[in-house]
């Protein structure tokens, strides 16, 4: 779909209003709840392990460029670095995209400052390795083994190199927390890492870690939208079962005048 159909305009406008409305409502002081996310409760444990052992932590935002996923990953890692900064832990953040490097460096510096230890930040610990998938993996593997990292946090876009990094982390005995929207890599993270954030938990992570009203409000909006989507799917399936493809046609690629969708449904139901 290169340009919006009328259903796309309606659906996206509705979803956007719900999410923004929930955010604004949360900013007005409504107390909000977020359920426990198992993988994220282990972050303190992982940071504590690095402190006890006096070994660095390794963070990675994967192979993504300046996109939503990488920014979300950086937001999660900033929160982790803030926790680590309180204990003066050393954090290594190799990046695979040069365009992300300044954002990553800035984010880590600010996290150390927010954690009360700006002096503990070393710019050379946020370094560019390579934009090539397996050169990056080889560099990270070497870094993990040489630095004997105590904990690893892998959040972002990962592909096949994910398992290389996670297994090398296991070899040095690092405690590992991973989360990625790349569903094809989640099984390997589950097998190789100690804690894994699955699917949408990736986008809920910052809300869980920071308890910021804006982010919690956004989660409420997302849940409402998910509920609407489930209702659409169930209703659509039932309608289709009884011969009415209204909702099925509603989500098609072709644009029709609004009433055209109903007319299409009636005609199809009659055939």
């Amino acid at each position: 779909m290169e340009h919006a159909t009328w259903p796309a305009r309606i659906v996206l406008a509705l979803f956007s209003i719900i999410i923004i409305g929930a955010v604004l409502s949360a900013q007005r002081g409504r107390k909000l709840f977020i359920r426990r996310i198992p993988g994220l409760t282990a972050i303190d444990e992982a940071v504590g392990r690095a402190t006890e052992m006096g070994r660095p932590m390794l963070l990675s935002v994967g192979l993504g460029s300046i996109d939503i996923i990488t920014l979300q990953a950086l937001a999660i890692l900033s929160s982790i670095v803030q926790t680590a900064a309180r204990y003066g832990n050393r954090v290594l953040l190799p990046v695979a995209d040069s365009a992300i490097l300044p954002v990553a460096e800035d984010a880590v510096r600010e996290a150390y400052t927010a954690g009360g230890r700006p002096d503990a930040f070393h710019p050379e610990d946020v370094m560019f390795l390579s934009d090539r998938q397996f050169a990056y993996a080889a560099g990270v593997a070497g870094l993990i083994n040489r630095e004997q990292v105590a904990s690893m946090f892998l959040f972002g876009t990962f592909y096949a190199e994910a398992l290389i990094m996670a297994e090398n982390g296991n070899r040095v005995g690092a405690i590992q927390v991973a989360g990625t929207p790349s569903t094809t890599q989640i099984p390997f993270f589950i097998a190789a890492c100690d804690y894994v954030i699955i699917g949408d938990e990736f986008y809920a992570a910052t809300a869980y870690l920071t308890k910021q009203p804006t982010l919690l409000g956004s989660l409420v909006g997302q849940d409402i939208v998910k509920g609407i989507l489930i209702a659409c799917i169930v209703l659509g399936a039932l309608l289709l079962t009884f011969g009415s493809p209204v909702l099925y046609n509603f989500f098609q690629d072709r644009d029709l005048p609004l009433l055209g969708y109903l007319r299409q449904a009636i005609e199809a139901g009659g055939s």
């Binding site: 999410i19 939503i68 996923i69 920014l71 937001a75 984010a107």
Partner: peptide, 20 residues
Amino acid sequence: LGIGGLATALRLWLSLERGS
């Protein structure tokens, strides 16, 4: 993931994103 991505994009676009 799609809904989460859309929400994050909205927050980014309207500068509602939070973090250090």
